[in-house]
Computed example of a mutant assay.
Amino acid sequence: MRNLVRSLALVAVVFLGSQYVSAQQKIGHVNADEIFQMTAEFKTANEQLRTLNDTKTKELQGMYEEFQKKQNDANEKLRNRSEANKTTVDAELQTLGQDLQSMEQRIQEVQRVAQEDLGKKQQELLTPIQTKVMNAINAVAKEKGYAYVLDTSNGNVLYFQGGEDISADVKTRLGIAANATPAAPAVPPAR
C-alpha cells in the first residue's frame, strides 16, 4: 500500500515539475492512515491485537518471574556455601545454572513466537481493512474525476497547496462519522 502511494506521489511530482499536467487535471489529497484508523473494522481488530498482545505479555512475565525466582535461589545458595557443604552446593548450582540457561532459551523462543504470532495476526486483520480503504479512495477519485490523489499521511508529500481534500468523501463511503477520531494502534505495525 505504501509503495503504491509513494509511486503515485512520485508520479504526481514528476508531472507537476515537468509541466506535463494540464490545468484540467484535478489533484486531491487524503490522509489514508487517519481514515484507516477511524474504521470500525480497525477498532475491532485493534482490540483483538491488544488482547493477544496482553496474553503473550502475561505469559512472558510469568516465565520471567519463574526465571528470577530460580536465579535468586541460585544466588542464595552461593551466599550460603561453606567448605562443609561446598560439594553439595556446587552440584546444586550446576543444575540450577543448566535450568536457568534452558529457561532463558525457552523465554527467547516464546518471545520470538509471540512476535511472529502478533505479526501474522496483524497482517491477517489489517490487510483487508487497508484494501477496503484503498478501494474507497479509488472509487471517490474516479467519481470526482481526480487524475491524482496524494496520501499526506506517510510524509512523502513534502508540500502541497491546493488540490481538494477528499477525506470527507472517503469517510462517507466507508460509513465513518464526520467527527470520528482515529484509534491508536494496539501494537506497532509489523514490518
Rank of each mutant, 00 (worst) to 15 (best):
residue 190 A to C: 05
residue 141 A to V: 01
residue 57 T to D: 13
residue 28 G to M: 03
residue 136 A to S: 05
residue 131 T to E: 15
residue 152 T to N: 01
residue 178 A to P: 05
residue 144 K to F: 00
residue 171 K to H: 01
residue 89 V to W: 07
residue 150 L to W: 03
residue 85 N to E: 04
residue 183 A to M: 07
residue 178 A to G: 04
residue 35 I to R: 00
residue 11 V to N: 11
residue 65 E to D: 13
residue 152 T to Y: 03
residue 151 D to T: 02
residue 3 N to H: 15
residue 21 V to P: 01
residue 104 E to R: 12
residue 159 Y to N: 10
residue 53 N to G: 11
residue 102 S to I: 07
residue 33 D to H: 10
residue 130 Q to W: 07
residue 121 K to E: 10
residue 132 K to Y: 02
residue 52 L to M: 09
residue 141 A to C: 03
residue 90 D to Y: 05
residue 169 D to Y: 04
residue 172 T to S: 14
residue 51 T to C: 02
residue 171 K to A: 05
residue 188 P to F: 14
residue 165 D to Q: 08
residue 152 T to P: 00
residue 19 Q to H: 14
residue 181 T to L: 15
residue 159 Y to Q: 10
residue 133 V to I: 08
residue 130 Q to E: 15
residue 39 T to P: 01
residue 10 L to I: 11
residue 14 V to L: 11
residue 102 S to Y: 09
residue 166 I to G: 02
residue 178 A to T: 14
residue 45 A to I: 05
residue 132 K to I: 01
residue 61 Q to E: 12
residue 36 F to A: 02
residue 88 T to I: 10
residue 164 E to K: 06
residue 121 K to I: 01
residue 125 L to M: 06
residue 136 A to G: 05
residue 53 N to R: 09
residue 65 E to C: 00
residue 77 K to N: 12
residue 6 R to V: 15
residue 130 Q to V: 13
residue 186 A to Y: 04
residue 109 E to C: 00
residue 19 Q to K: 14
residue 17 G to I: 04
residue 39 T to E: 03
residue 34 E to K: 11
residue 158 L to A: 13
residue 83 E to T: 12
residue 142 K to P: 00
residue 16 L to N: 13
residue 177 A to D: 15
residue 179 N to H: 06
residue 152 T to G: 03
residue 61 Q to V: 06
residue 75 N to D: 15
residue 92 E to N: 08
residue 115 Q to F: 05
residue 89 V to T: 13
residue 137 I to Y: 02
residue 172 T to M: 09
residue 22 S to T: 14
